[in-house]
Design a protein around this nucleic acid. Sequence first.
DNA 1: AAATACCCTTAATGTAGATTAAGATTTGTC
DNA 2: GACAAATCTTAATCTACATTAAGGGTATTT
Lengths: 191, 191
Amino acid sequence: MQALINHFQKYIPLNEAEIQLLEGRVKERKIKRKQMILQEGFVCKHYSFVVSGCFKMYGIDDKGYEHNIQFAAENDWIADIGSFHSQKPSKLFIEAIEPAEVIQIERQDLYFLYINIPKLDRIFKVIIENKFVELQNRVLQTFSSTAEQRYLSFLEQYPNLANRLPNTQIASYLGITPEFLSKVRKDLTRK
Amino acid sequence: MQALINHFQKYIPLNEAEIQLLEGRVKERKIKRKQMILQEGFVCKHYSFVVSGCFKMYGIDDKGYEHNIQFAAENDWIADIGSFHSQKPSKLFIEAIEPAEVIQIERQDLYFLYINIPKLDRIFKVIIENKFVELQNRVLQTFSSTAEQRYLSFLEQYPNLANRLPNTQIASYLGITPEFLSKVRKDLTRK
DNA sequence: AAATACCCTTAATGTAGATTAAGATTTGTC
DNA sequence: GACAAATCTTAATCTACATTAAGGGTATTT
């Protein structure tokens, strides 16, 4: 619980009353490895703040292959924002890669909090802006560099994720097959 | 000017005082075709709201090729958000594809407005959330479908853009070459 | 401790899309 | 209205990455 408060305080300090309100509207939950907190076809019911552990969010294509669109580890948020707000069924899965603890907020509670703690609008605006910039860089990189370059910048940008994720998951995030990532890695060690 | 007010009112109504504040902090500007409102190496000084016309935002790769990461037409926003907030040089270009009119807000003015019109935090939070969802769908599609499928869904999702943009620009947005888009189009007409 | 599921690698073959080049057509500019 | 510049197309050749298949290694689960 303190993890979430600390997270918000990094943006704007909260007072006691605000913390009380917040505590009344969130739920802590433990998640097992491989457990899904969102499945295709279901509405995304929560914004989830990751206290510990690691998640992947992915979609499945026509051929049944998974494509990771985001990881979320400590102090990161994960949700299908589109489904969460529209209440329409999601096309995505969110699954724990490691056993995890999350703090979850339901839609009605988040809306209540937005009304009663206006600075949360500011805080989440900044959080999403940062995520948007990150994602935009990823799009540009996907189109303008090779798999090898993308792998190297993944290692640089997320060293913390790189050494706790299996390469299959990284490959899926980079948009390549595990076999090709294996070749890229071999070529790199030869250099 | 009215265009911007209408745009905000679609999210939350503004009162007279708020509209006054807003009008004092924005500037209208006419932009010629091919004129750039952001160039690589410069700090992004404005959030730009497009009243009329159309822009592309792109990066240039090692080989000198352009990669479109976003278009913006009427009632859309365009800026390098990362550079705008961090005041660091951008790696992107924003260029008018058609003669355009924009309403621009500078960083200090936007920060002033966020403080004095708190509902703007809410409004921009929602705007960015929507753009984030759109971008996330694009990432998933890029990894999980063929160039032909991506072209077809571009036509569906942005029919308005599709018939005013040259195919070279669409190809760049889809992450393929103009030559290959030409082939895709030929194959489609044969079906 | 064994069983099982997952993960990593190698290598042969296949393919979506890139590159190069060239001509035809359209569009913008003076 | 004419010139220049950008755009679209076709087709041959090339390449980054996918697919398939198979063997060995390493965690998790029971």
